[in-house]
Each structure stands twice: as structure tokens, then as C-alpha cells.
């Protein structure tokens, strides 16, 4: 079985989806490690599950939460851990809308 290979472009695409960035040195060590991991998970890709069905864990509509309001947290508690707040809101540098 051939080993799944991964290209730099592929890794960059994944990094983009992950909101992560890597230096070139990090990438150099990352790729072979990642290929080894892919080799491990490829056992699943290549296994036989027949016409396997996925059984969703489920519950009945009637057992769902009733539509009742409960108290929210105070604003200052909500914002407590934020690196930056203004006017009762979380704050980031101005974005173009």
C-alpha cells in the first residue's frame, strides 16, 4: 500500500483552515511526521465496513428543553476574560464590512 503523501500546498491549505502559521523549519519537520500519522489513519480509509450505517444517538422531540428563559450572566462576567473590551462589547481592530 502506498503511503499518502502530502504537499506543501496541502499543508498550507490545512494551516489556513486551522488559522495557524508555520515557519519553514517547522514545516520541514511537520511534513514527515504528518505523513506517518496519515499512514496510521489510512488503515481506516482502506478497511472494509461493508454497507456500514451510522447510527445517530437520538432523542424524541418531546424530550427536548422547554422554551423557558433563564437568567443570563452579567455583562461584566461575560467580558471578564476578554483581552480587549469597549462599551460592553468584545473588541477587535476595525474590520472592513
Amino acid at each position: 500500500m502506498s503511503k499518502t503523501k502530502i504537499t506543501i500546498e496541502e499543508v498550507k491549505r490545512l494551516a489556513d483552515l486551522s488559522a495557524l502559521e508555520f515557519t519553514d523549519e517547522e514545516l520541514a519537520s511537520f511534513i514527515p511526521e504528518f505523513e506517518n500519522i496519515l499512514h496510521l489513519v489510512d488503515e481506516v480509509k482502506n478497511c472494509d465496513v461493508g454497507d456500514g450505517q451510522i447510527d445517530y444517538p437520538k432523542h424524541l422531540l418531546c424530550s427536548l428543553r422547554d422554551d423557558q428563559v433563564k437568567e443570563s450572566l452579567p455583562q461584566e462576567e461575560i467580558l471578564k476574560n476578554s483581552p480587549k473590551t469597549k462599551k460592553g462589547s468584545f473588541c477587535v481592530p476595525k474590520m472592513l464590512d
Binding site: L61, D66, D67, S72, Q75, I78, K87, G88, S89
Partner: peptide
Amino acid sequence: QAPNTNCCPVCVGLPGALPVLNKKAVE
């Protein structure tokens, strides 16, 4: 309402918070 006053761990996505579905919304 005043900003961030109708909020709790779930709707602000605090660590460890879990969603619980509202029956009325489905209905």
C-alpha cells in the same frame, strides 16, 4: 438590549459550554 447582556457560557462559546436544543424552535 444592552450589548452582551443576554449571554451565557453557551452563546458566548465559553470553554466547556454545551448546547441544549429548544423544543419550540424545532416545532
